[in-house]
């Protein structure tokens, strides 16, 4: 049990260290399919966060009642309930967004990020911790979706949130709206994240080395590529 981990850490880890998209590579289906604009990204991210947070609280509260043989079915039942709520609310209140997201709202039921957090976290921790974890993961997911959707929208249609920002002579890159653009952008962003975290690790390692290795000794380090 991770009782020693500070509560704030449970929230923060979803943003960067364990970012569901860039680090865990979960929830790729909605990630690649709906991020043609930043608005779709926000909608999808918030819908997933809502489902994730509430199902985590319920499942974590009921974790001692659910027999382990039928746990997956029980999780799906809880998740499906919240997905239905989101689906109906979006249809009633934001019909255009609901149309843009299409079948991907009902598909949150089988989003591996949602199910994965229940199996890996909520079923083993108390509700408060599960709530923070789910909120962090949801936020991380939303940030990733908005970044991807924003990048694709700027290049693919010269707009951001529906406002044209690129100069008139800019010809939109149609590929960015197509599925190929989603894969390209995601791959490049993941490469960037991997590069940044590698650099962070290298800086940390250098700091530790500086502390323990006497300065007069020449420090020889091999390149980690």
């Amino acid at each position: 049990m991770s009782k020693q981990v500070a509560l704030s850490k449970e929230y923060v880890k979803g943003l960067w260290e364990n970012n569901p998209v860039f680090k865990q590579v979960l929830g790729m289906c909605p990630m690649l399919a709906v991020t043609t604009s930043a608005e779709n990204g926000i909608g999808m991210g918030l819908a997933t966060t809502f489902v994730l947070v509430f199902s985590s609280i319920i499942i974590s509260s009921a974790r001692k009642l659910i027999p382990s043989q039928v746990r997956i079915a029980s999780y799906i039942l809880v998740i499906a309930t919240f997905v239905t709520i989101v689906d109906l609310v979006l249809k009633a209140q934001l019909p255009s967004l609901s149309k843009a997201l299409g079948p991907f709202i009902p598909l949150i039921v089988v989003n591996c990020l949602v199910l994965g957090r229940q199996e890996a976290f909520s079923s083993k921790n108390h509700p408060g911790r599960a709530f923070l974890d789910a909120l962090g993961m949801g936020t991380g997911f939303t940030i990733a979706l908005v970044m991807l959707g924003g990048a694709r929208e700027i290049l693919g249609s010269g707009q951001i949130l529906g406002i044209t920002i690129m100069p008139e002579m800019f010809e939109p890159w149609l590929i960015m709206i197509l599925p190929a653009g989603a894969f390209l952008t995601l791959g490049l962003m993941m490469a960037l994240f991997a590069h940044l975290s590698l650099r962070k690790k290298r800086i940390e390692r250098d700091a530790i080395l500086k502390k323990y290795v006497k300065p007069e000794e020449p420090v020889k380090m091999e390149e980690t590529e």
Binding site: W173, L174, L178, G181
Partner: peptide, 8 residues
Amino acid sequence: AFLQATYP
């Protein structure tokens, strides 16, 4: 191929 998809 990239250009073909970008500027069809």
